[in-house]
C-alpha cells in the first residue's frame, strides 16, 4: 500500500467510525478493522475523537460583551452617518434648487 492508499484507508476508517459508510463499503472496512489490530486501534481513536468533538459542540461559550458592544457601536455610528449624509444631501439639493431658481435657470415646478 502506498502512502496515498494508507491515507485513503485512514479516511475510510474515519467515515466508518462516523457512521457514514453503508453497504459493501461498510462491510469491507468492518472486515479490515476486525482482522487488523492497527485498524481496530484507529477506529477506536476515531470514535473517541468524534465523541470529544461532539462534547465540545454541546458547549455554549459565553460571548464577550465587548463583541456585542463593538457591533452595536459601529452600527449606531454608521446609521448616524447615513442620516447625516441624507440630511446634508437634502440641504445641498435645496440650496442648489434655490440657486437655479434665483438665476432663472429653470422655471419652478419643472422636473429636475
Amino acid at each position: 500500500m502506498t502512502g496515498v492508499d494508507r491515507w485513503e484507508v485512514l479516511e475510510r476508517i474515519g467515515a466508518f467510525a462516523a457512521g457514514e459508510l453503508s453497504g459493501e463499503e461498510a462491510r469491507e472496512i468492518e472486515r479490515f478493522i476486525l482482522e487488523d489490530p492497527e485498524g481496530q486501534r484507529l477506529a477506536a481513536s476515531y470514535v473517541r475523537m468524534l465523541a470529544l468533538l461532539g462534547a465540545i459542540g454541546e458547549e455554549t461559550p459565553e460571548v464577550p460583551e465587548a463583541v456585542i458592544n463593538h457591533a452595536l457601536r459601529r452600527a449606531y455610528v454608521s446609521a448616524f452617518m447615513r442620516q447625516a449624509e441624507e440630511f446634508f444631501g437634502g440641504l445641498g439639493r435645496a440650496y442648489l434648487d434655490a440657486f437655479v431658481y434665483y438665476f432663472g435657470l429653470k422655471r419652478p415646478g419643472t422636473a429636475r
Binding site: 502512502g3 496515498v4 494508507r6 491515507w7 485512514l10 477506536a44 481513536s45 473517541r48 465523541a51
Partner: peptide
C-alpha cells in the same frame, strides 16, 4: 498527505476502565 511504509502510531490513549467507550 502521504505516509511512509506503515501508519504512524495514530492513537488517542484509551481511558483506564473505559475502553472504546465514548462516554
Amino acid at each position: 498527505r502521504e505516509f511512509g511504509d506503515e501508519f504512524p502510531y495514530l492513537t488517542i490513549p484509551i481511558p483506564p476502565g473505559g475502553e472504546y467507550d465514548p462516554e
